[in-house]
Amino acid sequence: MKRTIFNSQLLPWLLLAPQLAITFIFFLWPAAQAIRQSFLRQDAFGIRTTFVGFENFQRLLNSPEYLNSLQVTAVFAVSVTLLSMGFALILAVAVDRMIRSSRIYTTALVWPYAVAPAVAGILWWFIFNPTVGIMPYVLGQLGYNWNHISNPGDAMTLVVIASAWKQISYNFLFFLAGLQAIPNSLREAAAIDGAGPVRRFFDITFPLLSPTTFFLLVVNIVYAMFDTFAVIDTTTRGGPAQATNILVYKVYFDGFVGQNMGSSAAQSVFLMLIVTVLTVIQFRFIEKKVAY
């Protein structure tokens, strides 16, 4: 790389200014605002604002609704991650074995990633619509009465499927690249060493994929927790009875619909902490623990 020496201090700062400005105005400033707001409370008419210290946080941790949302988020994130990674791995293993048609399949499997989350949500909402959808019809034939509008379990299943479906493409690409980086001779050596196909997968392939798997684990949890707002909003809107009200959706709902800015801000601060922890875990571990 070429190094440039600047004669004055001014020019480098000027060149950095646009990036710094964007970071400051769109990231740091709103984050600071959220933190400030989380210590304040407004009265019902928005006339008086008072400083309440950690009361917003205290109330959250004592609120059954918030604790429920935490639990819902955990179930949701774990389900989406397992489902999307599991399916992606199966597809990647299948495509990795193909020789001639793998490119066509890869291209086809990547398409869902280009679909906007809101569109994905609507798509699955139609497929599972209790009145006009195909899946409730099929399930009805099998004796199951699907209704995600009134049944919390069905609602959760719907948002999990819609969210996981969109993420499969992304996971698939990374798993496929990971699989193709494993030298074939390792699997051949294992075959000669008396390991059958299943054993080869669990003894050789899967451990060697662990860096990819761990990276995807963090990315998928982050995705499920923060990027699935549109899916929830277009399908269940957090319902029924809070069954799919994940943390991100609750921040929006309490703040913009319920107009409780203080509580919404405190929830945002919790989310910031969660993201920070996930990021630290990712950077700490990805190079140490999982490398072989």
Binding site: P183, S185, L186, E188, A189, A190, A191, I192, D193, G194, A195, G196, D203, I204, P207, L208, S210, Y292
Partner: peptide
Amino acid sequence: AERDIAMVFQNYALYPH
């Protein structure tokens, strides 16, 4: 595995983990 042979590969093919 059933042929009772052992093979040494060019890139050794040692299991890295």
